[in-house]
Design a protein around this nucleic acid. Structure first.
Lengths: 206, 206
DNA sequence: GTTTGTGAAACGATTCACAGCT
DNA sequence: AGCTGTGAATCGTTTCACAAAC
C-alpha cells in the first residue's frame, strides 16, 4: 500500500465529487486540467495525486469519468456504506444526525448514545437515544468501525477508551481535547473555534 | 509581518488553550517541553513556532504563562470580541449558534439570515432570523469582519459575493463548494463528510 | 496535436544540534 | 546546569518539464 499524504487523500475526495457532477451531466471524459480547474489546484497536482495509485488515464485523451470515479471510490474505501456510532446527543450531534451530506456520502448514523436520563429513550431526530452504559453491549452486537464523539471535553477521553475497547478503528472527534488512542486507531479532530482563530489571525495580519 | 504557515497558527491557538489551563491552575512558568507534551508536538516545534514572532522566553527558565498567553492573543488577534454574521438558519447553523465554544473564544453571533419565510422573524435559539434580503442593510449598519455560511451548496457563492460586497473579509464556509472570492478575503472551508472519507481511507489501507 | 505519467528540481515545513543567556 | 533561540540539515510536498502514448 503506498504511503500517501493526507492532503492527497483530501484532494482525491474532492476529485470524486467533481467526477460525480460530471457523471450527472453525462460527460464521458475529463482531463487533469478540467478536474484541477474545478477544485483549486493544478493539472500536475491531479496527475501526481493519481499516480500514487496507478495510471488511470489515456494519453492524449484524459480520464474516463465513470472509470476514474470507480477507482477513487475503491481507493478511498467508499465501496460500501458505513454505520456510525454517535456519542453525545447535543447540539453538534443533532446537526450531524440531520446532516444530509453524511448519508449522501455513504455514512449512516446507526446508534446514538448519551448520558443524560432526560434524553435516553426519547425519539430524537428520528433516532432513539440509548444509555451510554449500553455502549459496549450495543456495539458488540452491531459493531461499527467509525464513531463520532460530540461529548463535552471532559468526557471525551473516557468515551474514546471504551470505543477502542469494542473495536472502533476510526474516530471523528468534535471535543476540543487531544485523544490518546492506540496507534492502529485513526483520529480526526474538528475544532470549529480553532478555524475562526485562523481567520482572526488572517484579519489581524494584513 | 512574518509570513507564517497555517499549521503554525493552528498550533499557536492550541498553545494558547493550554496556557489558559495552566493559568487557571496557577502555574506561573512553563517550558517548551511542557507545552509540547500537552499538545502532540515537540519542544523544538514550539520554540520554532514562537520564534517567527519574537523571543518570549527566558533561557534556563522557560516562558511566563500569563505573558506568553497575552502575546499569543495579540498575535492571533484575539484582543477583542468578533461579531459574526451567520447565513443559513439550518441544522448546522443551529448547532453553531448554541455552541458554547464560539462565545468562549470571543466570537459572538450577531445576526442570522435565511431565505425561508417560515423562519424569518421567528425567534430561533434566542436570536431573531432576518430576511436574507436585509443582508446589505443590516451589515452596512453593523458591519462584521467574519461571516459563517451554512447555506445549501447552490446558494453559497451568491451569498459570498454579497458578503464581500458589504466588506466581509473572512468567511467560514460549511457549504461543500469552493468559494471564489477576491484575494484579500480569507476563506476557511469545513467539510464534514470529507473528514469521514479520510477516515474511510485510513480504514481501507491497513 | 493533445494529454498522461513521472523523474528531477524547487519549495516549504519539521527536526536537529548547539551557541548563548540566565 | 537548564532551557531558549536559531541556523543548518533533513524530510516531505508541490511544481516543472518532457518523453511516451494515443
Amino acid at each position: 500500500m503506498p504511503k500517501v499524504a493526507e492532503s492527497t487523500i483530501r484532494r482525491l475526495s474532492l476529485y470524486l465529487r467533481f467526477l460525480e457532477e460530471f457523471e450527472e451531466q453525462g460527460i464521458e471524459t475529463v482531463s487533469s486540467k478540467a478536474l484541477a480547474g474545478r477544485g483549486g489546484t493544478t493539472s500536475a497536482q491531479v496527475r501526481k495525486d493519481l499516480s500514487f495509485f496507478g495510471s488511470f488515464g489515456k494519453r492524449g485523451l484524459g480520464y474516463s469519468v465513470p472509470e476514474l470515479a470507480g477507482r477513487l471510490r475503491t481507493i478511498i474505501g467508499l465501496g460500501h456504506r458505513y454505520p456510525l456510532a454517535l456519542i453525545g446527543a447535543g447540539k453538534i450531534g443533532s446537526a450531524l444526525v440531520q446532516h444530509r451530506g453524511f448519508a449522501e456520502r455513504g455514512f449512516d448514523i446507526a446508534a446514538i448514545f448519551d448520558r443524560d436520563p432526560e434524553k435516553i429513550g426519547q425519539p430524537w431526530n428520528g433516532h432513539a437515544v440509548r444509555d451510554i452504559s449500553e455502549l459496549e453491549a450495543a456495539l458488540t452486537a452491531e459493531p461499527v468501525e467509525i464513531a463520532v464523539i460530540t461529548t463535552p471535553a471532559d468526557a471525551a477521553q473516557a468515551v474514546a477508551d471504551r470505543l477502542v475497547a469494542v473495536g472502533v478503528k476510526a474516530i471523528l472527534n468534535f471535543a476540543p481535547v487531544k485523544l490518546d488512542v492506540p496507534e492502529d486507531v485513526t483520529v480526526k479532530a474538528v475544532n470549529l473555534a480553532l478555524e475562526l482563530e485562523v481567520l482572526s489571525y488572517a484579519l489581524t495580519n494584513r
